[in-house]
Simulated assay, not measured.
Amino acid sequence: MSTPGRRPQTKTRTPWLPPRWFIVLAWKVHRAIYRVSGGRRGLWPASAERWGTMRVTTIGRHSGQERSVILGYFEDGPKLVTMAMNGWGEGEPAWWLNLQAHPHAEVQLADDSRLVVARAASGDERASLWDRWRSLDKNLDENARRRPTETAIVVFEPATNAE
């Protein structure tokens, strides 16, 4: 039995993804739409059938400067859940490395802003949250196999509850 998000020993066909340069360009365009619209476009709420997008502002682990990124998420009660997948590429995304060094962050949702504390899910919680992502993304397991390491499930808890 393989761990969700970890590359299994058997070879299966992975779904098509655009080239890396296109994924990076799409991220930049998405951030530009958000910025140019003054935050009126680029974020949408999650629903039971679809993940939403949120803007996460972290503190750079080396620079100490604020860094923002737009991520997909779903809600789990008062918690927000995302994956540190780096566009299914190798390596950990910078925002996740920043959160590991400084777990406090600000999250901007389509209709709300929150102060949060980030942590990686593990054990049964991770398995349960992975299953929830799987219900929102039918290609989750196949895409996760592209990564040589396990994809972290990141949980953002309200700062008042997690401190």
Rank of each mutant, 00 (worst) to 15 (best):
2 S>D: 03
2 S>R: 06
2 S>W: 01
3 T>N: 04
3 T>F: 00
5 G>S: 06
7 R>A: 05
9 Q>L: 10
10 T>E: 12
11 K>P: 01
11 K>T: 06
13 R>F: 05
14 T>M: 06
15 P>Q: 05
16 W>M: 07
17 L>K: 11
17 L>M: 15
19 P>E: 14
20 R>H: 10
21 W>C: 04
22 F>I: 12
23 I>G: 10
23 I>D: 14
24 V>Q: 14
27 W>R: 15
30 H>K: 09
34 Y>G: 01
35 R>A: 08
41 R>K: 13
42 G>S: 12
45 P>Y: 09
46 A>T: 02
49 E>F: 09
51 W>G: 12
54 M>P: 00
55 R>N: 05
55 R>S: 05
55 R>C: 02
57 T>L: 05
57 T>E: 07
59 I>H: 10
59 I>T: 15
60 G>P: 03
64 G>F: 11
67 R>W: 01
67 R>C: 06
67 R>E: 02
70 I>G: 02
71 L>E: 01
72 G>T: 07
72 G>I: 04
73 Y>Q: 07
75 E>V: 05
76 D>P: 09
76 D>I: 14
76 D>Y: 11
78 P>F: 04
79 K>R: 15
80 L>K: 00
80 L>S: 02
80 L>A: 06
80 L>T: 02
82 T>H: 10
82 T>P: 01
82 T>M: 09
83 M>N: 03
86 N>F: 03
87 G>F: 03
88 W>Y: 15
92 E>P: 03
92 E>W: 02
93 P>L: 03
94 A>I: 01
95 W>M: 09
96 W>P: 04
97 L>Y: 03
98 N>P: 11
98 N>L: 12
100 Q>M: 08
101 A>H: 14
102 H>I: 00
103 P>R: 00
107 V>F: 02
108 Q>A: 12
114 R>K: 11
114 R>E: 01
115 L>A: 14
115 L>S: 07
117 V>A: 04
119 R>N: 11
121 A>M: 09
121 A>R: 06
123 G>C: 08
124 D>P: 09
127 A>M: 06
128 S>D: 13
131 D>E: 14
134 R>E: 11
135 S>V: 12
135 S>R: 13
136 L>F: 10
140 L>E: 10
141 D>I: 01
143 N>I: 02
145 R>M: 05
146 R>K: 10
149 T>P: 00
149 T>H: 11
150 E>P: 07
150 E>R: 08
151 T>F: 01
151 T>P: 03
153 I>F: 04
158 P>I: 04
160 T>M: 07
163 E>C: 03
163 E>S: 12
